[in-house]
Design a protein around this nucleic acid. Structure first.
Lengths: 208, 208
DNA sequence: AAGTATATCCCCAAAAATGGCTATTTCCCG
DNA sequence: CGGGAAATAGCCATTTTTGGGGATATACTT
């Protein structure tokens, strides 16, 4: 298991190196203080996992992970930082990072994280996991009591796709009038009065 | 650290009990095979962490976590299942679960998960973490080159809100015909042919 | 000065959507 | 068995949307 490090703080970089080489499970294939020639280095070293500091001089860690994942999708990147800052977490994760470990984490958590991401899983340090979770739980209050039947959901789905009554009737092999009736019922259940409101409410409430 | 278990499979429940009592860090305060009198039990036992099977008879685990978190927000719930099914993962997490451990996970992972959630963090088993991550990285392929003018964006916004041509005309103090013209231009720029497609494309591409 | 983009307005006619009302069949529940 | 939900289908009339032609004014660019 080949691991590469990008970390500008010399002290911390050396302690990372120590953890990696003494873990017994990894081979340290590179350790750098900046992202110069980033892609060439990755290309040459062929690491399985990259440990990347989120605050690097020059091109920062967030942009780096994007570049790495674009050029080498099979390389897994695990981010590291002292701060657990929302924006940076989400920016990193959206750009392709597979893990996020705080620098305050104990060595065994780091080892664990590397193993997890290398084997195709992901690892979040608990405080980061908590923030990721908050994102899901902060979803806009859904109108809970919109209870559509299976048929109605299907028709709503096609409505959102942009089909007309006629097209839906053809697609589902039922009469135009039936579509009409269903849509009337859907609008009533959703408390809306037309296509426009129905579609945006459906999308916002994830009814489709 | 008080831990309660809800798990209908007797064998597995007993092995959970064993892990909890032998870990040395936890006090097993309750172990149940169903969710009868759920809230009363929680009330009486005052657990710090609840281990909840996602597939329980009667009221299922997903509904249970919702109820627990609503009545006792300070109680941390960690979900367990043999399946790592997308819908259930997200339903649980959105309903307030703080952790998600597969039943195939080794005991030390379970212990770790309980400690993490008890201390205010969250824990995802690596495969679950990977799926959570996938949700962030699944950026809808944005149609990059839809260049609307400010006025067009404004009209599109109201269209998504569900306003009719007439209502928009009133709102913006311009003629119905102007709305008509703008929408024609908007539809052409967006490569759509009607309200329905325009609204869903606008929402998907975050044009509004 | 000519050309282009933007916003505004208008006519016409066809196509689509909506709302009120009724009706049949099927299937499930008490 | 009777009642109710769900899916199906229809009639009628009105409103809304859409696409095809225009047109004018203003501002900014070349």
């Amino acid at each position: 298991m080949r691991v590469a490090i990008f970390e500008d703080n010399k002290k911390y970089r050396e302690s990372l190196e120590f953890v990696i080489v003494t873990s017994g499970d990894f081979e340290l294939c590179g350790s750098f203080s900046d992202t110069k020639n980033l892609l060439q280095r990755i290309e040459a070293l062929q690491p399985h996992v990259v440990l990347m500091d989120i605050n690097l001089p020059g091109i920062n860690g967030i942009e780096s992970v994007r570049q790495i994942k674009q050029a080498f999708p099979q390389v897994q990147v695990c981010m590291q930082t002292v701060f657990d800052d929302d924006d940076k977490i989400f920016a990193s994760l959206c750009n392709g990072a597979s893990g996020y470990v705080l620098k305050t984490a104990p060595p065994d958590e780091l080892v664990r994280a590397i193993k997890d991401v290398a084997s195709g899983g992901s690892f979040f340090t608990p405080s980061v996991a908590r923030r990721v979770l908050a994102h899901f739980q902060a979803q806009p209050v859904q109108d809970a009591f919109i209870q559509l039947t299976a048929r109605e959901k299907e028709i709503l789905k096609w409505l959102v796709e942009g089909l007309s009554y006629k097209e839906m009737a053809n697609r589902l092999n039922i009469s135009f009038h039936t579509i009409h009736t269903h849509l009337r019922n859907i609008y009533e259940k959703m408390h809306v009065s037309g296509k426009g409101e129905a579609i945006s409410k459906a999308m916002r409430n994830k009814l489709v």
